[in-house]
């Protein structure tokens, strides 16, 4: 059985490349927040209080534009509603945890921490100390996000724009993490269907669709549906001689 410490280190190790790749985004956030007229302390606080990249980017812009608070809150709700999916996916595994653990782990449940944690939980269904993995992944991302934001606030305006391609390092990391787990047809189907549905939704001629991150939600639902459908087809084929 793996100890708490082993689980913690495994979570940190897996999350580290992803977390490092989010630093450029943290820097960009810091720069944009200051440009929007947000005081440095508030900009830094956004990264720890909100701790949700896309909602922070949109929120900072809206604060800068002087949009009403209720509209900003509603936008945050729409952008982050996809996290319900993460909450639903990990809930069965969190059942026996104390309320304190549930609060901490929920706070740390970002896109980037969810994926490795969910994959780890699916591979090791009966490890009692697994919540330390979740914590390790979450806190690693949290730390890098705070440091990236801080760097953006302090020295962001001195960085050369020729480094703009660094944003794609996160996608390279995502590919390295997810493609190796595409082991059967339903998984490959889910991957392709989710991506295509997201691109098509993103191509709709309504800017509000991509602003609210709806392509991610639509793509995720399409991917899950495709996976379930292909799985059922495979089972039907195997049960008929």
């Amino acid at each position: 059985m793996r100890s708490s410490r082993n689980e913690l280190w495994a979570g940190i190790r897996t999350e580290l490349p992803i977390a490092l790749s989010t630093i450029p985004f943290g820097i960009i956030f810091g720069v944009l927040a200051l440009q929007a007229g947000i005081p440095p302390l508030v900009a830094q606080a956004m990264s720890s209080v909100v701790f949700a990249g896309s909602a922070q980017f949109i929120g900072a812009g809206m604060i800068g534009d002087g949009d009403p608070m209720l509209i900003i809150w509603l936008t945050t709700l729409i952008i982050n509603i996809r996290h319900l999916l993460y909450s639903a996916t990990l809930a069965p595994y969190a059942e026996k945890l104390s309320l304190g653990w549930k609060v901490v782990l929920s706070y740390l449940l970002t896109d980037e921490a969810f994926v490795p944690t969910a994959l780890h939980y699916q591979e090791e269904p009966a490890a009692p100390k697994r919540h330390w993995y979740w914590f390790g992944a979450g806190i690693t991302l949290w730390t890098c996000w705070q440091l990236g934001t801080l760097a953006g606030i302090l020295i962001g305006d001195q960085l050369p724009p020729s480094l703009a391609w660094l944003d794609f390092a996160l996608i390279v990391t995502f590919i390295g993490m997810i493609v190796p787990v595409l082991r059967d047809r339903p998984m490959v189907g889910a991957f392709v269907a989710a991506g295509l549905a997201a691109v098509l939704t993103n191509a709709l001629p309504f800017p509000i669709v991509s602003q609210y991150k709806l392509p991610i939600l639509v793509g995720a639902i399409a991917g899950i549906a495709a996976g379930v459908f292909l799985e059922a087809m495979l089972e039907a084929r195997q049960s008929t001689p």
Partner: peptide, 25 residues
């Protein structure tokens, strides 16, 4: 719960595809 096993793959795929195909929107 079985269906949600596809959630991690589906979520990352949406980021990967849109950032590859639509980098500037």
């Amino acid at each position: 719960n079985r269906a949600l096993r596809y959630a991690p793959v589906a979520i990352l795929s949406t980021f990967i595809f849109t950032e590859m195909v639509q980098p500037g929107g």
